[in-house]
Amino acid sequence: MHRIYFIVALFSMTMLYACQQKPQEGTRLAEEKQSPVIVVVNYPLEFIVKSLVGPDVKVLNPVPPGSDPETWFPNDEIIQTIQEADLIVTNGANFADWVKKLSLPRSKVLKTSIFLKEDLITVPDYEVHSHGSGGAHSHAGTVAFFWLDPALLARQADAIGKKLIQLLPREKESITENLKNLKDSLEPLNLKLDQLRSKYPGLHWFSQRPVYQYLTRRADWTVHHLHWKKNTKPNESTWETMKTIQELHKVPFMIWEQKPDKKLLNEFQQRGVSSFVLNPLTAKPARGDYLTEMRLQLNQLEAFLKSGSSTQESSETK
């Protein structure tokens, strides 16, 4: 008789435990679902999204430290994480190779360049290449480094803020407030660029490839790119192009993405071109954030222009 009671009790406990399992699983999934994941393609977009949302939202910049966000490619595991994200914030203008090569749901992708359409800069000789005997030809391309002009970064932030409010309607107030704060914090950068514009109007610069067009347009300067691929050495043709442009415009400065080697620096110096390094901030800076780093770099740029010719680098690349 006791054995029957024992079996009935055991059965009841088993059933009770089984019944409790489902809600626990459900709660866990609900909790996971409650914290949306937002994937970004580069550091400036990560900075914007993190400035707008609270800690409940997971902001994922999948590019590992030390990798180039323009050329990095994810593995299968990261691809799945990206595809399952609630929002994928892309830069547009063909920034980040993986955006074109992964299958992404359009409904989840926010292409921020769409909101800057009238201000995008298209370079006619963005890409030069050739096939067969047809000779080399060039393709126009849009410069992707919008965030180097804080006013464009603010508009990217507007677009992201609008999308985030759609995604997280409960957070509308805090997102709106954070967006206003972010825009306010960009003001000193705008002021600094306005000062540079009025103090040093109409300057000409060299750059390796089309990167600084938005920054130089803001300061009313002109930048000539040398069709010089990243991480390669200049050849005779590069020097030839440089000489031709210099004869036409008397270009006194070269703007670098990263510190060049001493030999190259001297070579440019000998040709009457002073060098300045301005980190385009595609990846997170070692210290500070977009605001502090841009402020520092613009101050250094002002000092460089004041001194006129000496080579300077931003603290980040030293």
Partner: peptide
């Protein structure tokens, strides 16, 4: 032509996308 190398039609194109050649 300057820094540009013009290849002939003998350059083999990949007929399959793999982990190694996707870039």
């Amino acid at each position: 032509e300057g820094s540009t190398t013009i290849a002939n039609a003998a350059v083999p194109q990949f007929n399959e996308v793999t982990e190694e050649n996707i870039t």
